[in-house]
Design a protein around this nucleic acid. Structure first.
Lengths: 189, 189
DNA sequence: ACCTGAACACCGTTCAAGT
DNA sequence: ACCTGAACACCGTTCAAGT
């Protein structure tokens, strides 16, 4: 009397990701996902514990993709060039995925799992260690990540309303970080 | 045949704010607000257009309070000391209002109105003009705001999982900003 | 072992009917 | 002019019944 599976967890997560990618987190309903994979909504609970768990799986996938993107960006060997490349890669990823990027930092979701998060920040830590030295690597990575995520979030939210050139503001900050994080004559941590 | 008002817009917004303050945005339902002000849910639509408009009114109030807080913080006349005070004031405000602070930047709400937003950033612009000069004031303010909001959002979301001293990471970045934003020998914008 | 319809407790919002 | 109950179209989630 067994009934054959009519979908898979992978297909469920992919359908969810596609919905978030196109329409954002609020459009991610169990009904929509069920329609997409050809099943009724209650059946999804055989694959994921609840909607929150599904959101988390999507967030993990986004974090992994971002990590790969940043890895590819930062490989020149020159720490300052790598920092610029990391910053650009981060921003371009957010712009390419404006609806799913917020899953990484939004307070409404739990965010990605620790493993996926580690994956996403690996390249940042590596470059910051090269740039600022091992003692300040974590501080520098946190400063860079906080700034970049804040900037991109504000940009996506349309929060830069005071005129001026947002592109220049980005470049201004990148250059301050590229020279400031590597300058050990600055105040010690 | 007129019926006397049984509540006011002010009371509705205050009730909404109290709910967000205690339990966060997702707990803000029209039913909860209606119960709080002693009215049935449909009556709220005589005061606000819809839930989104109510969220916006709450966000405006939070932005105004933050603006007042930052104004009080930055009044020493010494630009570097003012920047440190702004940063501390911002972070303390977020910690004092961890559930309502996210309304200012969350992508799920429209955020505060332009007027309320201007009010909140006035002190930041003033200090950044003192520190970085008129040409770089806006760039510097955007760097500072992006970093601070990113840091605080990550902190509230529990995103700093890699160990290390988060307090030190905050101080490290504040000092880099205090010296870096005011240093015109750095790369020009 | 998985899928399903039906049901439950919620949402936001509209609207005709009351006063 | 405002308030209300009833209703509508949604949610997420549970569960007994089917295969």
């Amino acid at each position: 009397m067994p009934a054959p599976p009519r979908t898979t967890t992978t297909a469920v997560v992919e359908a969810a990701r596609a919905i978030v990618e196109r329409e954002g987190l609020e459009a991610l309903t169990m009904q929509r996902v069920a329609d997409q994979v050809g099943v009724r909504a209650p059946s999804l609970y055989k694959r994921v514990r609840d909607r929150a768990a599904l959101v988390r799986l999507v967030a993990d996938q986004v974090a992994l993709e971002l990590g790969e993107r940043l890895d590819r960006a930062a490989g020149s060997g020159d720490p300052q060039a790598d920092l610029r490349a990391l910053a650009s890669g981060f921003r371009e990823f957010a712009r390419a995925h404006p609806k799913s990027y917020p899953l990484l930092f939004d307070p409404r979701s739990t965010g990605p799992s620790p493993e996926a998060r580690d994956r996403a920040v690996a390249a940042v830590l590596r470059v910051c260690a090269d740039l600022a030295g091992p003692d300040d690597a974590l501080h520098a990575a946190r400063m860079l990540t906080a700034w970049a995520s804040g900037f991109v979030s504000m940009e996506l939210a349309g929060a830069f309303q005071l005129g001026g050139d947002v592109e220049q503001a980005w470049g201004y900050a990148v250059e301050r970080l590229a020279s400031g994080l590597g300058d050990s004559s600055r105040p010690a941590s």
